[in-house]
Write a protein that binds this DNA or RNA. Structure first.
Length: 270
DNA sequence: CGCGACTCCTGCCGGC
DNA sequence: TGCCGGCAGGAGTCGC
């Protein structure tokens, strides 16, 4: 569900309510997330003042002077700001209560998300081997080209591999490949450098546009505070099987690649 | 090591 | 209308 744009939208949404606030308590109703929530959080987070909120890949990092809460939204997670006395709904698994009288509330029906505490998040086992940020300087066509030499995997799962580049999920992988005119099943190691220049640019463009639109809202996912994102109407291929390609008019194709639904135009993407 | 399959979990949607 | 199979935006782990 949430890819980089949705996580970034969530980060920006909660930031003004959380930064500068003192954490007055942590309420964990269900520790059974992707990994059991350690009591480190209960022990270390209360009493701390939130200094900043960062995003690394699809992780939200709630930074304090003594450590960082690391939140992942998984496939169905979302965050909101609620008043302390707001009753928790069935999948509201934890709250971080703030001195303002509000709480940061985490909801995640499928429980694929996670919550960790770390004094050195960059070195945390979940984060330490992640590839570069797609919107950062280190990410380029040259970089993708050099990392892909000798690799037979299809380009779509290649760019969805967080060890290569983070934040590119199933929606934006299809969208970026369409924008770059590259067939999603093409072997990553057999794509020329100049085509990777186009792909890296397309990834940056599609992610920036999606952030600007507040992310993509599909099915039950909403961004910060249950607000819908408006990028769905800008999707070129994702979820548009048999609908006309917006470029050539031929029907959009759907295949399964790496166990994931994949959309592309047979005419425009080679 | 690279790669593909499998897995976790709940909700929703489409088809019969 | 109701039930059921299939699928969902992630990503770690396992086996080959």
């Amino acid at each position: 569900m949430p890819e980089l744009p949705e996580v970034e939208t969530s980060r920006r949404g909660i930031e003004p309510y959380v930064v500068g606030e003192r954490v007055t308590g942590v309420v964990i109703r269900d520790r059974r997330l992707r990994w059991p929530v350690s009591t480190d959080i209960d022990d270390c987070l209360p009493g701390q003042t939130v200094r900043s909120i960062d995003r690394r890949a699809k992780y939200l990092l709630i930074n304090t002077d003594s450590g960082t809460a690391i939140i992942h939204l998984g496939m169905s997670g979302s965050v909101s700001i609620v008043e302390h006395d707001t009753p928790a709904a069935v999948h509201d698994h934890f709250d971080i209560a703030l001195g303002s009288g509000r709480s940061l509330r985490y909801r995640d029906p499928r429980r694929f998300g996670s919550l960790h505490w770390s004094i050195d998040p960059a070195a945390h086992w979940l984060l330490k081997d992640l590839g570069p940020e797609p919107l950062g300087e280190a990410f380029s066509g040259e970089y993708l080209w050099s990392r892909s030499r000798g690799r037979r995997v299809s380009v779509k799962p290649f760019i969805m591999n967080a060890a290569i580049v983070v934040g590119v999920g199933n929606i934006y992988a299809s969208e970026a490949l369409f924008m770059a005119g590259i067939h999603p099943r093409r072997a990553a190691g057999r794509i020329a450098k100049r085509r990777y220049d186009d792909l890296a640019a397309a990834i940056k463009t599609v992610l920036k546009k999606a952030i600007k639109a507040g992310g993509t809202t599909l099915r039950d996912f909403y961004g910060f505070n249950g607000e819908a994102g408006y990028f769905q109407q800008q999707l070129e291929v994702y979820g548009r099987e048999d609908e006309p390609c917006r470029s050539c008019g031929r029907p959009v194709s759907a295949i399964v690649l790496g166990q994931r639904a994949t959309y592309y135009c047979k005419n425009c993407q080679t």
